[in-house]
């Protein structure tokens, strides 16, 4: 182990290490971040939700979007898997269906970054009591 020699070194080290705690740091304060819930029930997994989620996570960090990804159970839209719910702070959640890698990119660049709506929106017919 090379020794840390200065404050600048220590800060550089912190920057490098910070990503290892990313998942935990974001969880401290999820309301202020973009929350993306991916439906990962049998139907979602079979339709490739896991690959899309991985792709989207990479893309989000590439674009510098602070987003929390969680998996959830079946949202009831098995006909439109993979589905995911995107909650931008201060806005109502929107559910997107038939999300493949391209649409995932679109959701991030168009909807999350610029507020434009993209194809594949499923009208939300549920409410969460968890407020």
């Amino acid at each position: 182990m090379t020794k840390v020699k200065s404050l600048a070194d220590l800060k550089a080290m912190r920057e490098k290490l910070q990503s290892t705690l990313d998942v935990r740091e974001k969880a401290e304060n999820p309301e202020s971040l973009v929350q993306i819930k991916v439906a990962m029930a049998t139907c979602g997994i079979a339709a490739g939700a896991k690959q899309v989620m991985e792709h989207m996570m990479n893309k989000a960090s590439e674009l510098g979007i602070a987003a929390v990804f969680t998996q959830t159970g079946c949202m009831g839209y098995c006909h439109a898997e993979p589905t995911l719910e995107v909650r931008v702070p201060g806005k109502d959640p929107i559910v997107f269906g038939h999300v493949d890698n391209n649409r995932a990119d679109e959701i991030l660049t168009k909807y999350v970054q610029n507020g434009e709506l993209v194809e594949g929106i499923i009208p939300v017919n549920y409410e969460t009591i968890d407020k």
Binding site: L10, R14, T20
Partner: peptide, 10 residues
């Protein structure tokens, strides 16, 4: 390293 990532020793 996890402490350093949280700003430890700064």
């Amino acid at each position: 390293e996890e402490s350093i990532a949280r700003g430890g020793y700064e």
